[in-house]
């Protein structure tokens, strides 16, 4: 460019502010460790996931079994690595699905005021139920299992997307640049895609990051209740559930998967908060 000292671009400034935020970077580090661990699980896991060893049942953490073994003598550390794949993938799928559905509904509600009332009343009904209770109700209808647990979580988190997106759209649609392109005769779907969506991306990104953690937590909770992933799947929530019966003899069976859940959710929350500050430095 001709001018060397241009004001920093939107994304560039955001990235710089995020990198300067230490807590957000801590979240990033946690998430990188867990993502790498899950991706490389087959390579770095010291023992095969399903390998049972009845000679070393319920053995305490040691050098052979870093985080101990469970009631079938399976290595907890290896199972945690593999369980991370399930949890992170599940979080990813639910976040992508609920973002797609929630953003679509939110944009429609915000831009077309005539259907706004109907959509928002539907969301109010969903929101009036505690998310976990709602998810349990959905599973009661669909039956337990990992897929159904994901559907339940998606339904439970959609309303928060619709609310955030709708209010963002409401403020953007009154901007004069939207009026200007309406005056040009640009079609509604083009206005929504080119002028409204790019300007509401930051709240969507922040919300998705935090919802990632929420979804993982909710899915784990459902598995813990026996409604999501079923044992012997190495899902973290399910592992906590199995370990609960052995809590007095082998605390490591429940504590480590529980810690894994906590750390991942913490990582997403730290990153989400950091992103919010980075996107909107004024509201800190």
């Amino acid at each position: 460019m001709v001018n060397s000292n241009r004001p920093e671009s939107y994304w560039g400034g955001m990235g710089k502010r995020l990198r300067r935020n230490k807590t957000a970077m801590a979240g990033v580090v946690i998430l990188i460790v867990f993502t790498l661990g899950s991706l490389l699980a087959p390579v770095i896991a010291p023992h095969p996931v399903e390998q049972m060893n009845f000679n070393s049942r319920l053995s305490a953490p040691s050098t052979t079994h870093l985080l101990g073994t469970d009631d079938f003598g399976r290595d907890i550390f290896s199972r945690l690595l593999h369980g991370g794949r399930i949890s992170l993938l599940m979080g990813l799928i639910t976040v992508v699905l609920s973002t797609l559905i929630g953003v679509t509904l939110g944009i429609i509600a915000g831009y077309y005021r005539r259907v706004d009332l109907f959509i928002m009343q539907g969301m109010d009904i969903l929101m009036s139920l505690p998310a976990l209770l709602l998810a349990i109700a959905v599973i009661a209808v669909l039956g337990p299992g990992l897929t159904n647990a994901m559907i339940a979580v998606v339904i439970a988190v959609i309303p928060s997307y619709v609310r955030v997106v709708r209010s963002a759209v409401l403020s953007i649609r009154e901007k004069e640049y939207v009026e200007a392109v309406r005056a040009l005769g640009i079609r509604d779907w083009q206005i929504l895609l080119k002028h409204i969506l790019p300007n509401i991306l930051s709240p969507i990104i922040v919300l998705s990051t935090i919802q990632f953690g929420v979804s993982i937590l909710a899915a784990a909770a459902l598995s813990f209740l026996g409604l999501g992933a079923q044992p012997p799947m190495p899902e973290w929530g399910a592992m906590v559930f199995v370990g609960k019966a052995f809590l007095s003899q082998a605390w490591w069976m429940s504590i480590f998967p529980g810690l894994a859940i906590m750390l991942v959710v913490l990582g997403f929350n730290l990153l989400g908060d950091g992103l919010r500050d980075a996107f909107d430095p004024k509201t800190r």
Binding site: E176, Y177, E179, A180, H195, P198, N199
Partner: peptide
Amino acid sequence: RKRMQIVFQDPYASLNPR
């Protein structure tokens, strides 16, 4: 529609920032 156009008051709100 394009035969009539509008110029707005607030130059900071009349252009899409992205």
